[in-house]
Amino acid sequence: MYNVSLPWWAWVMMGVGLAVFVGFIILSVRRNHGVKRSLFASPYTLWMIIFTVVPCILVAYYAFTDANGAFTLDNFRHFWDSNHAKNELYATMGDEYAGYITRGTVNVDTLVYSLWMAFLCTVICLLLGYPAALFMADRNMKIGATIVVLFIIPMWMNFLLRTIAWMSLLEDNGLINSFLRLLGFEGVQLMYNSSAVLLGMVYNFLPFMVFPIYTSLSKLDPKLGEAAQDLGCNEWRTFTRVTAPLSLPGVISGITMVFMPSVTTFFIPRILGGGNTMMFGDLIESKFLTEGNWNVGSALSMIMMILILLSLGILRKADPEGEGGGIA
């Protein structure tokens, strides 16, 4: 038997949650003389409140306060002006040092780099994923189902494990380099650069691109393709005029599902980039865990969240019905 020991407040929280849930049921049964279906969502609502809404409020609270809990916007200024401390020092040293004051933008650079990497990753995933999805959804290809399984199997493995596996392939003494040396070539530096990070990202996020597209393609009525051919389209024109526009919802949801985790990636750059590359996720992590500066970390998180909400809003516009079945 495991020893289940939870702190006292956890028990209280669970008790309160249960009481609210039961109370909810009793109330609504009384009022409507029957059980409302939305009632069954209440545990989930409770969960969302405790673990999503409350943390968001906390993040906002930390972002707008300083270490003493007083209201400030410094944390956001810090994002733009990352050489904050240095500049303050110059400012106190008199006018002749005024020129040294710099708008240091380490944070902004990191953000731009993250967005650029996420963009590249999304584009590569789309270029690789669309043909794969097309192939998988083709009813005449008997092999399609096998490929679906091949895409799913790696997802059963842990994300960290998969990334570390790439390490053993790309290392200086890794599989690829050993093989090259065996053939008499010089070893190549494969790890600790942006390309390795990008490779890791594409590898990890590719399924999130493939599956929404696959879903929307396999929902497509094959009669539509026949209709296009009937009206004079050859295979390529059938694709550009019918298949591609109708799979757009899947593409949009694929882009969302790849782009968002890509921007916030923080483990892959550390493993495959070896500290030479830093992405926004790493920056936030280091603010919290290394520097212990929760206020600045929260401000950075908020900026990230706003960016993600904005991109979601844009994608919503493009796919108002959310047909792609993604998280958008």
């Binding site: 009525d221 009669k223 026949e226 209709a227 009937d230 009206l231 019918v242």
Partner: peptide, 13 residues
């Protein structure tokens, strides 16, 4: 030749 399909197969987009 042109075809009128059983379930019409109109282009939804």
């Amino acid at each position: 030749v042109n075809t009128v399909f059983q379930k019409y197969a109109l282009f939804p987009h």
